[in-house]
Design a protein around this nucleic acid. Structure first.
Length: 615
RNA sequence: GGUCCCGUAGCUCAGUUGGAUAGAGCAUCUGCCUUCUAAGCAGACGGUCAAGCGUUCGAAUCGCUUCGGGGUCACCA
């Protein structure tokens, strides 16, 4: 033994005890406080317990280093004293060992059984009490000139999952989407369609509407570049050519016509947008994302001017000689920022000031969250700073959930270079991969499945793989998308976790066939280490939901679901459930397995991932 | 250049307010199905936590510096 000190103590008999709304961790924490008070006549603050390292015996560990100064004792001595006190004075702690400043605590089986009972009999386990507060989550926010791509998927999955997590944290959640349906970009598609479309429709081309419009957006770019090239060849300066190319001039003209309400242009705009929305709807349906309210920029882009006026009167903004309006945010460490153009028209910021106000007046949410890529960090810093300057009551409850870009193994995705990964294609590929994998992995398991059932299973697995792949990474971090890994079904993946659910469901079905009734009560049997571990992990779930809500981090839930699934697989391999001859143990294991399945279903549900009964 | 984010195993990533010998998955290699779903389990291999200095009982985590990668600094959105 390389450690300086190593003590052990064990109690032989543990009296049964009733714990109402059992929380072992809290119980031990406060017991440690009592121990210190009793042993040293000292008050200590919050006691933090950490999970015990796997190589040591115990479940919870209390670190005593920090107490050495106030208690004037060596860390191991303190651990030994507190450990003894806990074993003598509580029924939760049944044994302990001390390794230097680490007090490792083992929990009595009776306490574990009590916890398991509490969790298993609580249908809303993992759902936190209502806060009485509401939060708005804005995400997705597509442009109407091209289909959704991989980057949008990260955004959508994040926004959807965060909404679910907040709901589980007791918030009323309003999901919103702002469709960017106006501006130069859509005019480009419109113009290209007008020139080269020949009346093509989604029906005639067999293309999804959003893909069709995306095609014309690309066509515009090609034709535009060709014009520039010709002009440059004829001696025009490149920058001048970019601005004066006939196609660009026409697009600008079209935008003006749109703003003036030109009937012909509006009709074209409506027609193309209708196609795009139909395409988007299909994609949203396939990924299971919905919104409570959709805002259209065409209806909100004029908002915000009243706020500019208000800000001018309050002296928050100032007007320059050219009539443009600005705010000086150098005190906040930001810059001077334009909030209204010299010609009186809105910029992005003007609009966002207006829509923030609009969303607040529509729903009165206590908090607003924007799921937007981190390239807009600065924009949101400015937006929030302005709202604080304008003394909006909600100004401190605005949050930008900033997420990193998705890179391909080949580098950055660039729409102009055609290196974007299309969302619909990707979903199809993951579904195909799940189907292909089933050929050699599923063996006879899917024999009773109809073709439709198989298709729906493969969609569930493919989408599960994709969602999990994008959500398991910390949102803030830039991540790399590896196509081969994203469709993998093994290891730390969505389908691995889905598999555990299906596995448990299969066992439960078999139990029913064998007429093994699952008695709701937990019998007083000894628990294996792996069973204790499972119960411990299960008991962490509500806290994990809270942490994920606090940090708006679906990755916490993903990580948790994997940990739980992995631990269950170890349990499944080590101990038999249905072959267990002790009827009480069998019953306990079925209850435990059932709870694992339910918790996996809930955790995956928070990620927006469904789980199959069979796979 | 100002400012913000990032740098952990060959690759992709965990590492929750500072805690024990830094963990998973993939890849490579080796075992385990007449037994509840092997889409599984177990094991091996793999690290100067970008580098340096500092704070402390203790640093991947906090501070400073350097190097490297990226975002942003539009009368675009």
């Amino acid at each position: 033994m390389i450690y300086i000190s190593y003590f052990c103590a064990r109690k032989t008999a543990t009296p049964e005890r009733f714990y109402s709304s059992m929380n072992i961790q809290e119980e031990i924490s406060s017991a440690v406080q009592q121990a210190v008070a009793a042993l040293y006549q000292q008050e200590i603050g919050d006691v933090i317990l950490q999970p015990t390292n796997k190589e040591f015996e115990g479940t919870y560990t209390f670190v005593t280093f920090a107490l050495t100064k106030t208690l004037r004792q060596a860390p191991a001595q303190i651990g030994q004293a507190i450990g003894n006190w806990l074993v003598d004075n509580t029924s939760v702690v049944q044994a302990f060992n001390v390794v230097q400043g680490f007090l490792n605590l083992s929990v009595a089986d009776a306490a574990w059984r009590e916890v398991l009972t509490d969790m298993a009999t609580n249908p809303s386990f993992g759902t936190l009490p209502a806060t009485g507060k509401s939060v708005m989550v804005e995400f997705s926010s597509p442009n109407t000139n091209k289909p959704l791509h991989l980057g949008h998927l990260r955004n959508n999955f994040l926004g959807d999952s965060v909404s679910r997590i907040l709901a589980a944290n007791g918030y009323d959640v309003i999901k919103t989407c702002i469709v960017n349906d106006r501006g130069v970009h859509i005019c480009k598609s419109m113009l290209a369609y007008q020139r080269f479309g020949n009346g093509e429709t989604p029906e005639s081309s067999g293309m999804k509407g959003d893909h069709l419009i995306g095609k014309y957006y690309v066509l515009f770019d090609k034709a535009y570049k060709a014009e520039i090239e010709t002009m440059v060849a004829q001696g025009t300066d490149k920058e001048v050519a970019e601005k004066t190319a006939p196609l660009m001039q026409t697009v600008q003209q079209m935008l003006r016509q749109w703003e003036q309400g030109d009937p012909e242009i509006i009709a074209l705009w409506n027609k193309l947008n209708t196609w795009v929305y139909a395409g988007f709807d299909t994609t949203y349906r396939s990924i299971g994302v919905t919104f409570d309210k959709t805002y259209y920029e065409s209806q909100t882009y004029l908002l915000g001017k009243e706020i500019i006026e208000e800000g001018l009167q309050k002296g928050v903004f100032y007007r320059k000689d050219d009539n443009s309006v600005w705010i000086d945010l150098t005190e906040e460490g930001l810059d001077q920022k334009l909030v209204l153009r010299s010609d009186g028209t809105s910029v992005y910021m003007t609009q966002d000031l207006g829509t923030t106000e609009l969303k607040y007046s529509d729903f009165n949410c206590d908090r607003q969250i924007w799921v937007v890529g981190n390239e807009q960090d600065y924009h949101f810093n400015v937006l929030f700073a302005i709202m604080r300057r304008l003394e909006r009551p909600y100004a401190n409850e605005l949050y930008h959930l900033s997420y990193g870009m998705v890179d391909l193994p080949t580098g950055k995705m660039k729409s102009r270079e055609g290196t974007v990964v299309d969302a619909d294609d990707l979903i199809q590929e993951t579904t195909d991969a799940a189907s292909a994998a089933a050929d050699d992995a599923a063996k006879g398991k899917l024999d009773g499945f109809t073709e439709a059932e198989k298709t729906s299973l493969f969609e569930m697995l493919g989408l599960g793989a994709l969602k999990y792949y994008l959500l398991k990474v910390d949102p803030q971090k830039r991540m790399q998308f590896n196509p081969a890994e994203s469709v993998d079904l093994h290891g730390n993946t969505g389908p691995y976790i889905q598999y555990v659910y299906a596995r448990i469901r299969s066992v439960v079905r078999k139990a029913a066939e064998m007429d093994v009734a699952i008695d709701g009560a937990i019998a007083a049997t000894d628990l294996d280490d792996i069973e204790q571990q499972l119960i411990f992990l299960l008991s962490q779930f509500p806290q994990r939901v809270a942490d994920a809500g606090q940090n708006l981090a679906p990755s916490y839930i993903a990580q948790y679901a994997y940990e739980l699934a992995k631990t269950f697989n170890q349990f499944y391999d080590k101990l038999s459930i249905l072959k267990e001859t002790d009827a009480e143990k069998l019953n306990n294991r079925l209850i435990l397995s059932n709870l694992v399945a339910e918790t996996i279903r809930k955790a995956m549900g928070l990620l927006g991932i469904d789980v199959p009964e069979k796979m």
